[in-house]
Design a protein around this nucleic acid. Sequence first.
DNA 1: TTGTGTTTTATTGCCTCC
DNA 2: GGAGGCAATAAAACACAA
Length: 322
Amino acid sequence: MVGGTVFSAASNLTTLLSNQTAPSASQPIDSLFHSSSSSPFFGSRSIVSFGDVQGGKGCNESFFLPYDDNGDEDTDEYFHQPEKKRRLSVEQVQFLEKSFDEENRLEPERKIRLAKELGLQPRQVAIWFQNRRARWKTKQMEKDYDSLLACYDDLKANYDDLLREKDELKAEVAKLTEKVLGREKVEEGNFEKAETKGCFQEPVQKSMIDSASEGEGSKVSIGACKREDIISSAKSEMFDSSESPRYTDGVHSALLETGDSSYVFEPDHSDVSQDEGDNLSMTLLPHYMFPKLEDIGYSDRPHSSCHFGIPEEDQAIWSWSY
DNA sequence: TTGTGTTTTATTGCCTCC
DNA sequence: GGAGGCAATAAAACACAA
């Protein structure tokens, strides 16, 4: 990159020159880049001379040799040394962090101003912001990942509960059906007996059927009812029963209130590909199972909105905006 | 002291926008 | 076409265990 090359050359030169001189003597060189010399960060710690970066540890010390200490020899040495990276001072970084918190984008004027205040090259400030944005993004992705993982765990637990509940309901339906059929057989036997005896007359049969279909939620008197009627009555009895302890939460009652029992009685996909969890097929799951992330406390980023892609207008799965 | 992993600073190449 | 942003990467600086 052209700019980078120019900068490197310039900073190389200034570094070399500053290494030849005492810290205070480097200011005239700095002023080539910075018109202001009143910055608290300005002077020996700028791009041209990082004297005490990180408390003077590491090779920064070697970059800031004492003025009266074999200067000429080192001058030649450093003239042939490529530009080295130097870390910004704690104060500089703190200042930049504060500025980044205010606004993570740099307008040209702000960049110049910050550079002046910190005694850095504008390009250094720009690079710092760029790298800082990259770090922020990485952190944000980690956070997002954790949140999504938590969401997934919740959903999977919910899904497993529903599966278990569905199995229980199925078993109960089977049990009731069996019971009803048993009684039906007995009644059929009695009916045939009675019929052969001729003690059943038309009006009586009709009244039995009427009473059976009238009594929603009541005990169905099983006689000449059709098998389908009986089963459906049993089902409605089962679901209408206020004694049932299972539907106490909003989710389940909402499920039943829809009047759409397909969630419960739909063909059992889970039995076909029952690798639970791994085959957690979002498309098979009802809407209520997918809370918005905000609803579960995930609102870290103002513009983020992860809805897990569920039916609400068929939002795309996993897509959210920054 | 040294090897190794992590963090920070800087470069490069590509892309988008004006 | 130039400026600025980003991803990928290099390399220096740093931390730390052995």
